[in-house]
């Protein structure tokens, strides 16, 4: 077996998977707090990604634009929670699902309404930028050789960025008072209220945080694709939710493991079974594995089983 090729595919897979892990983390944060699947997670990120493109048009450096984009994402997430999700969650889980679906459609339409339905940047519609702002050096020669595999700085940078974010989230969850409150709300909302925790605030921040993390995923994807378009985040959302499903919807660690695993499965299966799977079927393979996992363990690999009460 060609070792350097394997190494390259593993690194590409992990780097790709780390983006899925970001979306999965956002989904898990929301699911733990409220028990809902945020169908609009990817589209909230996409809106922020378009904003980062816009900031780039205005000449704002990419890292500052990234933080501003995260801020936009936070506001979109938090406002959605307060104005839509919280009032509707009194009705039924189905109503919440439909509202996030409505939000998904609305945000995607809004992006199109503001920025048009072409890929951006596009000099034809007056873009100043040549390509979507890159967080890391991404020219063709920006790579190094490691054990025979050519590894792009961009890939390593993305992986490191995701690790830093995961680490910060870990610290937030486990070492801060607010993180304790978030975990308490996820574990038992009523007891959290009785402990004096402002659960409404916690949920609002959770949604904001999830969307802000998603925004990072969107900017990374924009950089990898060199452009942002209306369909950018949908497949990422699918991979992200697949990662969350695989890891278990209530386990942040599981989300990261799930994301990396799916990135690996996707890259290795399409790479080593080119004839059978190739580019067209790699998503199908990843999803088939997840369905198989769900049938054996209905709450994912690291999720906790919920006992149904009568």
């Amino acid at each position: 077996m060609d070792f350097s090729l394997l190494l390259q595919r593993v690194i590409d897979g992990i780097s790709q998977g780390s983006v899925y892990a970001l979306i999965a983390l956002g989904l898990v944060i929301i699911y733990r707090g409220t028990g809902h699947l945020n169908f609009a997670q990817g589209e909230m990120a996409l809106f922020a990604t378009y904003c980062v493109y816009q900031f780039g048009e205005w000449g704002i450096p990419v890292w500052i634009a990234l933080f501003m984009g995260m801020g936009v994402g936070f506001v979109v997430g938090a406002v959605s929670e307060v104005t839509l999700i919280r009032p509707i969650s009194k009705k039924s889980p189905f109503a919440v699902f439909i509202v996030t679906l409505g939000l998904f459609t609305f945000l995607n339409w809004l992006d199109g309404a503001i920025w048009g339905n072409q890929q951006l940047p596009n000099s034809g519609v007056g873009s100043k930028q040549q390509s979507f702002p890159d967080l890391f050096p991404a020219d063709p020669e920006d790579q190094f050789n490691f054990l025979g595999a050519s590894i792009r700085y961009e890939r390593i940078g993305i992986l490191l960025l995701v690790l830093v974010i995961t680490g910060l989230l870990f610290l937030l969850f486990n070492k801060t008072k607010f993180g304790l409150a978030m975990r308490a709300v996820a574990s038992n909302t009523e007891s959290a209220k009785l402990a004096g925790i402002r659960t409404n605030l916690v949920l609002m921040v959770s949604w904001g945080l999830a969307a802000a993390i998603g925004a990072v995923g969107g900017v990374v994807m924009g950089g990898l694709n060199n452009s942002v378009g209306l369909g950018l985040m949908f497949s990422i959302f699918i991979y992200g939710s697949a990662a969350a499903t695989l890891g278990g919807f209530d386990s942040p660690g599981g989300a990261v493991v799930g994301g990396l695993a799916i990135g690996l499965i996707e890259n290795l299966s399409s790479g080593y079974a080119q004839k059978w799977i190739g580019q067209e079927l790699k998503l199908a393979v990843a999803l088939a594995i997840i369905v198989a996992v769900l049938l054996v363990k209905p709450s994912g690999l690291f999720g906790t089983e919920k006992v149904e009460r009568v």
């Binding site: 996820a186 007891s191 004096g196």
Partner: peptide
Amino acid sequence: PQGRGTFPELSVEDNMLAGAYV
């Protein structure tokens, strides 16, 4: 509260600290 008034996924210590949240 009635029944389980704890945070089952959290450690005993974290439960106590959550109780002192205010």
